[in-house]
């Protein structure tokens, strides 16, 4: 299963061009879950990088 194709299919279901259209709940959940997951992952990744850099550089050099 291709996640990108799956994402596109969910988005096409949510095409708002029809008058009075309401997005599908699957798309609403996706729009909230993906940014939150991205934020948590990137936050953790930067924290990890900071820790590694602090360990590899002696005090006063970071």
């Amino acid at each position: 299963m291709n996640p990108y194709r799956l994402l596109l299919e969910t988005m096409q279901d949510a095409n708002p061009s029809e008058p009075g259209y309401q997005a599908s709940w699957a798309y609403v959940v996706l729009c909230l879950a993906l940014p939150v997951a991205f934020g948590l992952l990137s936050g953790a990744a930067f924290k990890f990088m900071e820790r590694v850099l602090k360990r590899s550089l002696p005090d006063g050099q970071h």
């Binding site: 309401q22 940014p35 991205f38």
Partner: peptide, 27 residues
């Protein structure tokens, strides 16, 4: 932003692909 995203998604104003690409740069 969570509530704003929720209500704008229902109204068909959120393109999640666009948001994710922007997030790659902004973070």
């Amino acid at each position: 932003s969570a509530y704003g995203c929720f209500t704008h998604t229902l109204k068909g104003n959120v393109d999640i692909l666009l948001a994710l690409i922007l997030l790659l740069g902004s973070t």
